[in-house]
Structures are given as C-alpha cells and as structure tokens.
Nucleic acid binder design. Structure first.
Lengths: 247, 247
DNA sequence: AGTTGAAACTTACGTAACGTCATTTTGTAT
DNA sequence: ATACAAAATGACGTTACGTAAGTTTCAACT
C-alpha cells in the first residue's frame, strides 16, 4: 500500500487533487489506516495515470469518470466529439490571432488603437439583433438562400467576422488617402487572403456577395451590416488596383 | 436613457450579465429610477460594445476593466501578451488534436483502445519525477547537453511528447507482425512526419538521439524513459524499410 | 511510554463569469 | 385600483482545484 505522499512523488499530482478525486469519487483510495490516512494500491496508481492522460486530451473530470467506469462505453464517439471540439477551438483561436495581429498592425500604422471606430462598426454590424432573427428564414430568393447557406459565419457574430469588421474599420481610416497608398493596399491584401481562405481560388461567390451588399434593401434584408457607399466605393477602387498589380 | 431591456435588445447581452457587470463595477449604469431600475446612456452602450469586442479577443473581465479605465495604458503590451497566449493555446490544441487522431487510428486498426499499454508507457516515461530533477543540471557531457537543450519538450511531460508515447505504444502492439505490415508502416510514417516537424529535414539530431537511447545507462541518466531492446530493434528495422521506400 | 515534528486530516472560503431559480418590488396599462 | 409584465435582490450551482486554519495521526527518538 502506498501513502498519499508516495503517489504525489510518483505522479506529480498534488495532495489536494487526490483528496478532491476521492471526494468526487473519481479515484477512491484502496483503503485507509485506522487513523483515516488514505492508502493507494497499484491499481489506483494505474487509474490515476489514465486520468492524467485523458485530462491532457482535454476531457473534463466528469467525462473521464464516465469513460473509466463504463467499460463498455463507446470510446470512439467520445474521442470523435473531443476531436471536433478541439478543432473548433483551434479555429476560433486562429481567428482571434489574426484579429490581434490586425489590431497591432493598426496601432503601428496609425499610432492609435481607435477602438471607437472599430466598435462603431461592430455596433452596426450586430444590427438590432432581434430584427435579424425576425428576417431570417423568410423572403429570400433562391440565389440569396445559397449565399446565406454558404456564409453561415458571415452574419452570426463570431470571431471570424471580427476581422472583417476590423479590416473595414481600418479601411475607413484611410478614406482621405489615395487607394494606391501602401497602408491601404496592405489592408486590401489581408482582405484578399481572407477571401481566398473563405471562398477558395474562385471569386464568383465573393463578387455575388458584394453585388448583394451594394443593394441597400437586399443588404438589410439579409442581415448584413450596412456599409456606407463611401467605403464601398473606396474599397472597390482599391481592390481593382490590387488585382491589377497581382497580374 | 435606456432601460435594461433596451440594452439587451441592442447588444444581445443578458440581463444577468449586465447586473453582474454592475456588481463588479465594470459597467455601472448612468443612473437609476427612484425604484432602483437601472438606466443606461449612449456612453454606456458604447462601452459595453467595447467590452464585447475585447471579450471576443479572449481578455478576462478584469483585464478589460483595467484596459478601459486606464486610458494611458499601453495597449500594445496587452495585445502582445494576449497574442502570445493565443499562439501557445493553439499549439497545445494542435498537439492534442494529433494525439486524438493517433488514438482513433489505434482504435480503428486494433479495434481496441488499449489504454493500459499507453499509460504503462506514460508511467515509465514520467519516471520517478523527483529523480529526474535530481539528475538534471549535472553530469552531462557536452554533446548530451546539446541534445537536452534541443529537446526541452521531450523530457517534460507535455502534450507534444504524448504522441511519441502513444506511437511507441502502438508500435509495441505489432511486435509479432512483420516490419513491412501496413499497420506498422503507417505508424512509422506518422513518426517520420513528427521528426520532420521537430528536427526539420536533416536527421542528424534524430540519429544522435537514438544513439543515446540505445545506451541504457545514458538513457536513464538523461531522464528518458527506457525502451525495451525489442521495441528499439523492431523500430529500427521498420524505419529502414520505410526509408528505402521513400526513395 | 512520552514527546515531538512532520505529515495527513477536515472544513471552508476563493476563483471566473455568469445561469438559474425563488421571492419581492416597481412600472405601466387599463 | 388592480393586474401583469419587467426589474430588483439574494443565493446557490458550475470547474478543478489552491490556500489557509485548526486538529489529529504517524513514526521516530529519547
């Protein structure tokens, strides 16, 4: 029989954690001394290491408890779910990363964070929240439905759209400059990369999207945030410059 | 002045959350009715959206509070830190993802999870935890020191090493089969990919590493988990088959 | 056997960011 | 004045432990 100290030495797990596992009955000691000190056997040590392993994979203690108690359980399913979760989290983090980088670029270019502009965009972008759900699922022509299906993430407020908002906000900063200015083109380039990521090489959908956006009523109907004509025109001109330079 | 309901409609933030923000003084309403109902102004709405934005980037409420209160604060630093954090988390998740995929492959190949073997490896791999720290920082020849510096993640128990353990565990399952068996070669391929990731194209370090591992005393001295000669030999033979097929 | 210091024990609060009741007040329309 | 929605407060629940505070047990030494 191994004392609790022995276990901590061999696993690096703290005493508190072991007591906690005992408390939630995840890992109950094999026995106790008459004084109440916990005693663990080899079997418990093994189980503890299984717990450690599963924890590293990101499972919760509750899940681990179920997995280890129910021997007939379908592991495949649990692993599959966990994998899906991990992949999603990774993507979210990737978007956040890009947004952060974008923000930092914005700072270094402009010398200022300019949260107010950015969040004004977000405000517009989020729309009235209730109106949006009211419009959804009704009154769309087929073509628009296709667009909506292809772009589920463009009109929900997730971290992916965040960068679009940010980029447009940054673009808005440079309306007074020339569309060929390096700061402007840098932003456009990022936008270009992002469309590639989203739509792949072909830009059919992208063009359609912008066509819809340019029609104010449709834009509103589809739940997109309105973009001022100024910005739209500026963007188009800058985009054309960028495209011509690509060739 | 806007009622709390108005705010939830425009932002999608729940009443409870607004009350919580009031409680922790992150966002205090502009005023109250005589009856105690919260009233918000445009300024508060704006701040709330800033909070939302920062939250999407993964900042904690405490951090956001500081960022928004201290206008002179150096945002660059906070963003930089957050970026570092996000990148690390992403890497961790990537490792977990690979391990999960490895596990699932193991299942589909063997039809069994075989946690016992895996965790036996982990047990060995983790060693006695204290012994490890005792040996570290003393009694290494220069060459070994270089190796240790290049492989900080190989002898600490992080999720990266997890897959190595896993792969070796899987390999051990197939000791009875031929080294050219597709299951074996599949494992070897994953190992190959992983060495590329870790060491780049050149395999000098990798060979040295295995040289060290093949010497039992050195292996123990450097804190690596011991690998049975059986497994080592099997691995080497399988590796050679794989390499020859590459050309 | 008695003492003592280390180790283990229990109890309980703290963490982050709210969700979810339960209960009571306030606002507003009729 | 009354009814009903909406807002208020209070308190507990959630995760996986960390961190005291105060008490008891263990093992060794005299």
């Amino acid at each position: 029989m191994l004392s609790i100290k022995e276990i901590t030495k061999q696993t690096g797990i703290t005493v508190r954690t072991l007591r906690y596992y005992d408390e939630i009955k995840l890992l109950v000691p094999a026995g106790k001394t008459e004084g109440g000190h916990r005693l663990y056997g080899e079997k418990e040590l093994k189980k503890l290491q299984e717990i450690q392993f599963l924890k590293m994979l990101g499972f919760s203690l509750k899940e681990i408890k179920e997995m280890l108690s129910d021997k007939t359980r379908d592991w495949q399913e649990g692993l599959q779910n966990q994998l899906q979760y991990v992949i999603k989290e990774k993507e979210k983090l990737a978007e956040i990363e890009k947004t952060l980088i974008g923000l930092m670029n914005g700072i270094t270019i402009d010398g200022d964070v300019n949260l107010s502009e950015v969040q004004k965009m977000i405000h517009l972008y989020q729309g009235s929240y209730e109106e949006r759900n009211a419009y959804r699922d009704q009154m769309f022509c087929e073509e628009e439905k296709v667009l909506l299906d292809l772009l589920p993430n463009m009109n929900s407020r997730d971290s992916d759209s965040l960068e679009w908002v940010l980029l447009l906000g940054q673009l808005k900063q440079h309306l007074d400059k020339d569309v060929t200015a390096p700061q402007v083109q840098k932003i456009i380039q990022r936008m270009y990369e992002k469309t590639i990521e989203t739509f792949g090489d072909n830009d059919v959908f992208f063009n359609k999207l912008w066509a819809v956006r340019k029609s104010p009523e449709k834009s509103k109907k589809m739940g997109f945030y309105p973009i001022e004509d100024e910005v739209l025109d500026f963007f188009e001109r800058a985009w054309q410059v960028f495209e011509s330079k690509q060739k």
